[in-house]
Amino acid sequence: MTAIHQQQQHRPPSLVPLLVPLLAGGLVVLALGVYGRAHTPTGYAVGVAGFSAALPMKAWLTTGAFVLAIVQVVSALSMWGKLGITIPPAVHRWSGRLAFVLTIPVAFHCLYALGLQYDVPRVLAHSLLGCFFYGVFTAKMLALPKRDTPGWTLPVLGGLTFTALVGIWLTSAFWFFTAIGIKV
């Protein structure tokens, strides 16, 4: 084996394959933030479909996404061999898909009806976390099929996605349930 071939085998993975996913994720964050500030909030965006109002709908859908995000973490740990139990990869894929789908009406309502708000620190944190969540989720999904990324890519992007969703839940649903009460 030549010295050049040995160097190539021991070269750390390049960050170049992450450029497009990270750039796309950054653009999503920026686009959502700009839209949220530039758009004149309407106060109404989606029907509440069985809920008493928009806030309970958003709190419960976000809670559903939060619970599924916990399933995501547990199933990811299983897939990486960290739990000693085997959870089928389909559980990870479908819990992620369902969690994402649950966030769509919530995000649509937040952006269209309320916009990006910055007057109240909790609401500002919630707005920024929402934009960040969709950006890092985009980066994770675009990095997922790439086989030439560093080994830390998916755990870091997945961890950031989970952390953002936990922050979103804490600044919205948890706040709602503790400040307003448990309502449907």
Rank of each mutant, 00 (worst) to 15 (best):
L22A: 14
R93C: 03
L142P: 13
L160E: 07
L114G: 11
G135R: 12
W80A: 07
V34L: 15
L129F: 12
S172W: 00
V48S: 08
L124W: 06
P121R: 07
G47A: 03
P145V: 09
L154I: 15
G64L: 06
L102W: 06
L154C: 02
D119Q: 03
G151K: 00
V184S: 04
Q7N: 12
Q7L: 12
P12E: 10
C131N: 06
H92I: 05
H5Q: 15
Y112M: 05
Y118D: 15
L19V: 15
L170K: 00
G181E: 01
G64F: 01
S127A: 15
Y118A: 13
D119G: 11
R122D: 12
I182V: 13
R37L: 15
L18R: 14
G130T: 11
T149Q: 10
L15H: 13
G47C: 00
L55D: 10
Q9W: 05
A99H: 01
I85F: 13
A54D: 10
P41Q: 00
T42S: 11
S75E: 02
S95E: 03
G36F: 09
F177W: 10
V184H: 07
T153S: 08
G158P: 09
G26V: 07
A125P: 00
M79I: 08
L27D: 08
S52G: 10
A99T: 11
V91S: 06
P13Q: 05
G81A: 02
W80N: 01
L165M: 10
V120A: 06
K140W: 05
L98D: 04
D119L: 08
L124H: 04
D119I: 03
P41N: 02
V106E: 09
H39S: 15
